[in-house]
Design a protein around this nucleic acid. Structure first.
Lengths: 169, 169
DNA sequence: TTGGAATGTCAACAAGGCTGACTTAAAATC
DNA sequence: GATTTTAAGTCAGCCTTGTTGACATTCCAA
């Protein structure tokens, strides 16, 4: 509060944020992301899975029947990388890969009962923290939070993000 | 808007957010973090550095003269992991490690001119995106963004985050 | 029927985490 | 003054998750 940003009369409406203030936002992202992943990480560790598995399970739950190449574009990794993860999940009975009946090259991905259970436990943990953060920050903060995050995405990813649920939230 | 959260009379003040809404926040974190790291990553790649180097440079800039063990606790990695990164930075003249004069066991870390220049180019890139996001989201959103992120941190990390600048923003 | 797309797989490699064991130097404590 | 603890560094080896490149299979579509 020692800078122009809080000078009465100009206020923050013009977004005269100092570099220091913006930097603080950057550090907030860094530390918050650690918290964001901490709870699922603990669950995954016990099962010998990693974040890569979490992401795959999350998005297969989100879009049941999605194809491998669609998942690739959402996750932004190489197919070799995804394939390693997917193979483990299929081998261990968490994910089912059904051959497409229209296009038999495609594999449509579904969670099995066991996969759905893991997904639930992971997202329960993550939602609990998110909900607590929302509650602590107050009702007004939630919208601002989402708006800034959305504005921070690459345009392509933003499209995917928005498409993902189409009014689901 | 098809759920209890927007029922007139209770509104969002009670934070009746559906699981779907919270989930959307989780995905926002995921996609936004990709954007958050994208610009620095491009710069680092050309110089054969990675995110680990970025983090070290960032926090040394932030707290010049910090010790190795302090940096360890902020970054939350093992000393072997940090050492690998730090050695590269020192060897290549971006960071200077001065022996402490009070306690000669300690190494105090400083950016060299070259290190400061890299830091500037990385944080310029990151701040530009952050600023653009703030602008797009509007003045009210910034506070909410920071509040939710802060509430999302582990308590210990939150303390470190707050200590870091102590009123700097 | 042939070209290209979707998928899967093998091999090899790198970054950046991790553990464990050990050294050195210096400070702190007894 | 001797001993223990602390800060830092190092060596070796492992894991996850990312990368390239090469190649096989399948099959849609021009």
């Amino acid at each position: 509060m020692t800078n122009g940003a809080s000078t009465p009369g100009m206020g923050e409406t013009l977004l005269f944020l100092t570099d220091e203030q913006v930097r603080k936002g950057i550090e907030a992202m860094f530390f918050a992301y650690r918290g964001f992943t901490a709870d699922p990480d603990r669950i995954l560790e016990k099962l010998d899975y990693g974040r890569a598995h979490h992401r795959a399970v999350h998005f297969i739950h989100r879009s049941p029947g999605t194809t491998v190449s669609n998942l690739l574009s959402i996750l932004g990794v190489t197919k070799q990388s995804l394939n390693r993860v997917l193979r483990a999940l299929v081998d261990e009975g968490l994910v089912e890969a059904r051959v497409g009946h229209r296009d038999k090259r495609e594999r449509h991905l579904y969670l099995t009962a066991a996969g759905a259970e893991l997904e639930r436990s992971l997202s329960d943990a993550q939602r609990t923290r998110m909900r607590a953060a929302y509650r602590a920050a107050g009702p007004g903060a939630v919208q601002g939070f989402r708006q800034v995050l959305e504005a921070m995405m690459d345009p392509e990813l933003r499209k995917q993000y928005q498409t993902l649920t189409e009014g689901g939230a």
